[in-house]
């Protein structure tokens, strides 16, 4: 497990977290390259299936990054996303996976530091948790 490099998928809202990631870049703030972003128009678009499929296909951790509460461009998409993430967490716990592998994070577009910081923290957490059970169950070595 020494050299385990987790694969992290981040579903990022175009209006906030995606922009914050760009800001982190423009400020040259370093964060783990394990994080790969998929842009969505709103975190409300992120389906439980997207999160589950990401885990099944090989992600060790998935987070959904949306706007701060009250700042959603579409009124309440981020709140809905938070509910869905909580639902997926519960489901994962129920089947004996770590619900912690998925998380909802909020930030505003200007928070480049927060983007980098949360990317670091989440990656570290997943590193501690180890590879996704999807991989070990299938008897596969970590892809990567």
């Amino acid at each position: 497990m020494e050299n385990f490099e987790p694969e992290i998928v981040a579903f990022c809202c175009h209006y906030c977290a995606y922009t914050a990631a760009d800001m982190a870049g423009s400020k040259r703030l370093s964060y783990p390259p394990n994080v790969k972003i998929i842009r969505v128009p709103c975190t409300g678009k992120v389906d439980a299936i997207h999160i589950m499929k990401a885990l099944l296909k090989g992600a060790d951790g998935v987070y959904v990054a949306g706007c701060l509460e009250g700042d959603c461009h579409f009124k309440n998409g981020n709140i809905r996303a938070a509910h869905r993430v909580a639902y997926v967490q519960k489901m994962l716990n129920d089947i004996g996976w770590d619900g912690e592998r998925v998380e909802m994070i909020t930030m505003s577009a200007g928070m480049g530091e927060r983007f980098a910081q949360t990317a670091k923290e989440f990656t570290e957490k997943i590193r501690q948790l180890g590879p996704s059970p999807a991989k070990t169950a299938a008897g596969q070595a970590a892809v990567g």
């Binding site: 969505v40 128009p41 709103c42 409300g44 678009k45 992120v46 389906d47 439980a48 299936i49 997207h50 461009h73 579409f74 998409g77 809905r80 869905r84």
Partner: peptide, 20 residues
């Protein structure tokens, strides 16, 4: 925003440009 597409249990809704 795509909220409907995410919630639709039958996956009958797709948000164009961000399809599943």
């Amino acid at each position: 925003c795509g909220v409907c597409a995410a919630d639709c249990p039958a996956k009958a809704i797709q948000l164009m440009t961000f399809e599943d």
